[in-house]
Design a protein around this nucleic acid. Structure first.
Length: 432
DNA sequence: TCTGGGGTCCTAGGACCC
DNA sequence: TCTGGGGTCCTAGGACCC
C-alpha cells in the first residue's frame, strides 16, 4: 500500500471552454485574451505550435492571428468559472481528499488506492467521464508526491498518443526519466529568477536540481525550495491543503487609456473599493486594512515613471462600500501626484475577520445602519443583473469601459445567452 | 495606438519589550 | 576607549503560482 497524488489539469482550459459551445472551433487555433483584450492568456495546441508564448501582448500577434485564422476571444470568466465547478464536482466523486489548486487544476490524494485499483485505469476512467460530462479534456499525472505528480502531468500532456493523457510515476526509473526530460525552469515552483540562477550554475534539468546539496538549496531558495527538492526526490514534503479562508481580496485594473487627473483616478478607486466591499460581504467578512496603489505605464519608458502604494489601518472593521471607499480615497489622496500618466490602480483589503465576531472599538465603530443597507443593495443589484445602485463617486455616466470586443456568450449562466441549436449545428456536433 | 488579474508564502530588518 | 541579549511583532519586498 502506498500514497499517491494525482494532478488533474484541464487542457488549455479557457480555449477548451470556448470549444465546448462551438464545435466548429475543434481542430482550429483558438486564443483567449486577458482583461482589456491585452494579453494572450490561453492558447489551443495549434496556437502554441505557432510559437505564441503565454502572456504575449495581443497587438504584437494580431497580424499573425489574422493570417492563420486564429479564433480569438475576450475572457469570459462567467463561463469558465461555471465550467470549472462542473469539472471539480465530478472529480470530487472519485476521491474524498481533494484540493482545488486553481480554476483548472486539482490534486487528489490516492491514499492506499493502489491496493484496490490499477491507478492508471482509474485515472483513465476519470478522464473519460469528465470529457463526456463536460466536454473538457484533461490530463492526469500520478506520483508519490505533488511535485512529481506535476511532472507526471507534464509528460501526460506532452505525449497524449503514447500516454493516453495519463502518466503514472511509480518506479525509480520512471521518476529519473521524467525529471531528466523536464527543464529546470519548467519545474513547478521554479520561476524565471531561480531558473536563471540555477542555469548559471549548470543545473539544467529537474533531475540536476533534485541532486543539489540541501544547504545550497535552502540558502538560495529558502525552505520553499528545499521542500520542492525533497518532493522531487520522492519524499513527499508538500502537503495537501485544506480550504482556507482568504487572507486578502483585491480589485486591480489597467485603464483603457492614460489617466492624468485626480478625479479620474478617484472614480476608479471608488469603484474598486465597492467591488472588494461586495466580495467581502459575499463571503461574510470584514477587513481592517486597506491598501491602495497607483502606477504609471512601465512600458512607456520615455515618460516619467511613478508608482506608490499606501496601507491604511482602519479604526474599525467594516465591509460597507461607503466606509471602505472613504478610507481608500483618503489613501489615494496621500499618494497621488499630479503630472504623471497613470495606467493602473488597485484596492486590496487585508486583515479579514468574520463579520459575526468583530472586535468593537470603544470610540469608533462601523455605522450599524450600513449592514442592513448593503444587504438590501446587494439584493437589488443581484436581481437586476448589474450594479444599478452605486455610490455617487462611481462612474454614473459609464465613461469607463473594458475592451471586450471578442466576447463569447455566457452560455451556462445567463438564460438569455443560452446555447441555441438548429438542425444544421446538431448534425455538425454529432459528426464531431 | 495597443503589454492581465488575483492570489500565496517566506525572509530580513526595524521597533519594541523586559 | 568601552554601551546586553533574547524574544515578538510588524512591514516591505521578493519569489512563486495559475
Amino acid at each position: 500500500m502506498a500514497d499517491y497524488f494525482a494532478l488533474i489539469d484541464c487542457n488549455n482550459f479557457y480555449a477548451s471552454c470556448e470549444r465546448v459551445f462551438d464545435p466548429s472551433l475543434n481542430g482550429k487555433p483558438v486564443a483567449v485574451l486577458s482583461n482589456n483584450d491585452g494579453c494572450v492568456i490561453a492558447r489551443s495546441n495549434e496556437v502554441k505550435a505557432m510559437g505564441v508564448p503565454m502572456g504575449a501582448p495581443y497587438f504584437e500577434y494580431k497580424k499573425i492571428f489574422r493570417e492563420n485564422n486564429v479564433r480569438v476571444f475576450s475572457s469570459n470568466f462567467a463561463l469558465y468559472g461555471d465550467m470549472s465547478s462542473r469539472v471539480m464536482n465530478i472529480l470530487a466523486r472519485y476521491c474524498p481528499d481533494m484540493e482545488i489548486y486553481s480554476i483548472d487544476e486539482a490534486f487528489l490524494h490516492f491514499k492506499g488506492f493502489d491496493c484496490f485499483f490499477d491507478l492508471s485505469s482509474y485515472a483513465q476512467e476519470i478522464r473519460t467521464f469528465v470529457l463526456r460530462a463536460t466536454g473538457i479534456p484533461v490530463s492526469i499525472g500520478i506520483a508519490p508526491s505533488k511535485a512529481l505528480a506535476k511532472a507526471a502531468n507534464r509528460v501526460a500532456k506532452k505525449f497524449p498518443e503514447r500516454t493516453g493523457g495519463v502518466h503514472v510515476i511509480d518506479t525509480e526509473e520512471k521518476r529519473a526519466k521524467a525529471l531528466r526530460w523536464i527543464k529546470v525552469e519548467d519545474v513547478w515552483g521554479i520561476g524565471p529568477r531561480y531558473g536563471n540562477m540555477l542555469r548559471l550554475r549548470n543545473v539544467r534539468t529537474a533531475l540536476d536540481f533534485s541532486l543539489l546539496p540541501d544547504d545550497f538549496v535552502r540558502d538560495s531558495m529558502t525552505v520553499v525550495g528545499l521542500r520542492l527538492k525533497h518532493d522531487l526526490m520522492g519524499k513527499p514534503s508538500i502537503q495537501m491543503e485544506d480550504i482556507k479562508p482568504k487572507q486578502a481580496i483585491a480589485c486591480t485594473r489597467s485603464f483603457d487609456r492614460d489617466y492624468l487627473e485626480y478625479s479620474d483616478l478617484r472614480e476608479r478607486v471608488a469603484t474598486f473599493s465597492c467591488e472588494v466591499a461586495k466580495k467581502l460581504r459575499a463571503q461574510g467578512s470584514d477587513c481592517n486594512l486597506v491598501q491602495v496603489f497607483v502606477r504609471s505605464n512601465p512600458f512607456k519608458v520615455h515618460l516619467p515613471q511613478y508608482g506608490r502604494s499606501v496601507c491604511l489601518k482602519l479604526p474599525y472593521p467594516t465591509n460597507s462600500s461607503i466606509e471602505l471607499t472613504k478610507f481608500a480615497l483618503k489613501g489615494l489622496s496621500s499618494i497621488f501626484k499630479k503630472g504623471y500618466a497613470y495606467k493602473k490602480a488597485g484596492v486590496i483589503v487585508m486583515g479579514l475577520t468574520p463579520s459575526e465576531s468583530k472586535q468593537l472599538n470603544v470610540f469608533h465603530n462601523s455605522d450599524p445602519r450600513h449592514s442592513p443597507l448593503w444587504k438590501a443593495i446587494d439584493r437589488i443589484n443581484l436581481l437586476s443583473g448589474h450594479d444599478v445602485v452605486k455610490l455617487g463617486g462611481q462612474d454614473l455616466r459609464r465613461k469607463w469601459k473594458m475592451n471586450r470586443n471578442l466576447l463569447s456568450p455566457r452560455y451556462t449562466s445567463k438564460l438569455e445567452e443560452i446555447l441555441k441549436i438548429n438542425v444544421h449545428d446538431k448534425e455538425e456536433i454529432e459528426r464531431a
